[in-house]
Design a protein around this nucleic acid. Structure first.
Lengths: 138, 138
DNA sequence: TTGCGTGCAAAGGTTTTGCATGGCA
DNA sequence: TGCCATGCAAAACCTTTGCACGCAA
């Protein structure tokens, strides 16, 4: 840690507290302002950039902008696979042998090297699938 | 086809001509202007929206904005898997049994339903991987 | 004291929206 | 004639950048 400022800590705290729920930069700014610890939007973006570079948070590109999600590093820098629910926005990590072997297959047979950090499998998580089924019954 | 206008055709023609190379909306507007067939940016966005809804083009979300790529529908509406090269931006379709079975595995074992249309596997295509290897040797 | 982080404001870019106009059916 | 698409302009966003100031080391 070359530096520590209260803004840096505040940003990180919000991310930690959100846990698995990813947050957008403007939303994060609102949260901090409501907590009585306002941080400039530019600062937030700069901190998020640093945090994403070091792997402390994930940066997830969506149609409406980028989302950031705290990523407690289990095994430092290990490849982790991301599943994003299009309905609730949540992102889960998955360490699945089949997924890993698929990527190996793509590299070997289709000459395409998937970058797990840039790749997000998007779809419907279990909870949202349930809710959608309920609504479908109506 | 409820309607046919020359703008609609012009937009589609550019997309067809680009083939596999995805294009951004502002870039598409430039192309049309250079061809002597200027189309308003708003119109382009509206057309692209329609084309994406019907599945005629893919809409690919990137960090810098959305890209659109013509998608010659082989088997109408069939699920197609997308591989995007982060280096050159090109997107290829892939119909791979292993990929399909992986998605089934995720649904069955991890309760996550991947939506192929929203999912883009990002990484390095064969050509760009070669070039990168060459540069690495320097 | 030095340098980096911060805040504010402005700029840049993509995308959306409102409204009057014009063309196709 | 009626409706829908178009064009233009403005607006809404997110995000980045420049610059002066302040705080941490």
């Amino acid at each position: 840690m070359p530096y520590t400022t209260k803004q840096r800590q505040a940003v990180l705290q919000v991310l930690e507290r959100r846990g698995e729920r990813p947050v957008a930069a403007p939303e994060l700014a609102d949260a901090l302002r409501r907590e009585g610890c306002p941080v400039g939007l530019a600062t937030i973006y700069r901190q998020l950039e640093r945090l994403a570079e070091t792997g402390t948070v994930h940066r997830i590109t969506t149609e409406t902008g980028a989302l950031y999600q705290y990523c407690p590093r289990r095994d430092a820098g290990q490849a982790c696979f991301l599943l994003r629910c299009a309905a609730c926005g949540r992102v889960e990590h998955l360490d699945c042998p089949q997924l890993r072997s698929l990527y190996q297959h793509l590299a070997a047979e289709h000459r395409f090297q998937v970058d797990p950090r840039q790749t997000v499998l998007t779809g419907l998580c279990a909870l949202c699938a349930e809710q959608e089924a309920e609504h479908g019954e109506n």
